[in-house]
């Protein structure tokens, strides 16, 4: 018979006894297909709105962070990460990262990033850099606040992650984040030294790891190294150091 007729195929499929293996597999497949289509379409259609909501949430987060660091009005600036220069337009493009330089496990990063500056009478006081990187089982997203010398950490906060509750999730706790302010990112020679260490953290470049969450802690070290390095905000910070001194 003409098995090419889809209507006939469909009727033959429906007429199969429910416990026939072909019917079982077929129904499972069709239900999964329709459900995944439904979920996918909803997720894609609503993504712009959810992103806008999340952005508004970030704005509140940034203001709260700035408030705890002495207040002021954060000014959003677009920065071309490759050159470190301010730009006025975000083309929305991304740059692939070679795996040996991709410390934070990102795959690719945006070519233009939004940073936030707080100035007192034109003098830079704080700079807030969005950072992210792979933790143990999720992407850690947060803000690194640097003081005007661009080397002293003012704060590190994480606002989004999916780490193990009670272990890696402690990166969002104030108690752990309190270990960051005052730490020095780089040594006198400009080499990035900041790291999260197990055991007792000593010295100005070290922060205590979260016990039981080694991979999360290492992820934080790696994302700090990446975003402060040449593929992250390195060029921007170098340029700021030169220009803000004049």
């Amino acid at each position: 018979m003409t098995s090419a007729n889809p209507g006939r195929w469909w009727r033959r499929f429906l007429a199969l006894p429910n416990d026939a293996p072909a019917k079982t597999i077929g129904v499972a497949f069709l239900v999964a297909l329709v459900c995944s289509l439904l979920v996918t379409i909803t997720a894609i259609a609503l993504k712009p709105r959810r992103d806008a909501n999340r952005m508004a949430g970030h704005a509140a987060q940034i203001l709260a962070l700035v408030d705890t660091l002495g207040g002021g009005v954060p000014d959003a600036r677009l920065v071309d990460l490759a050159t470190g220069a301010y730009v006025t337009y975000d083309p929305g493009t991304t740059v692939d990262l070679q795996s040996d330089r991709d410390l934070a496990g990102l795959g690719s990063r945006e070519s233009v990033a939004t940073v936030f500056e707080v100035r007192d009478g034109g003098v830079l006081r704080l700079i807030l850099l969005p950072v992210r990187g792979a933790g143990y089982q999720s992407m850690l997203k947060g803000y690194l606040a640097l003081q005007a010398d661009l080397n002293t950490v003012a704060a590190l906060t994480f606002y989004e992650h999916g780490e193990t509750p009670g272990l890696g999730s402690r990166i969002e706790e104030r108690a752990w984040q309190a270990g960051w302010p005052g730490k020095q990112v780089a040594d006198a020679g400009g080499v990035i030294r900041i790291e999260v260490v197990e055991g007792a953290a000593t010295g100005v470049h070290q922060v205590d790891a979260i016990s039981g969450a080694t991979r999360t802690s290492n992820g934080v070290t790696q994302l700090m190294r990446f975003w402060l390095g040449p593929d992250g905000y390195g060029p921007f910070l170098d340029r700021r150091r030169m220009e803000e001194e004049q």
């Binding site: 429906l14 429910n18 416990d19 019917k23 079982t24 129904v27 499972a28």
Partner: peptide, 8 residues
Amino acid sequence: RRHIPRSI
């Protein structure tokens, strides 16, 4: 309902 195999 008439086409849902009992096993799944």
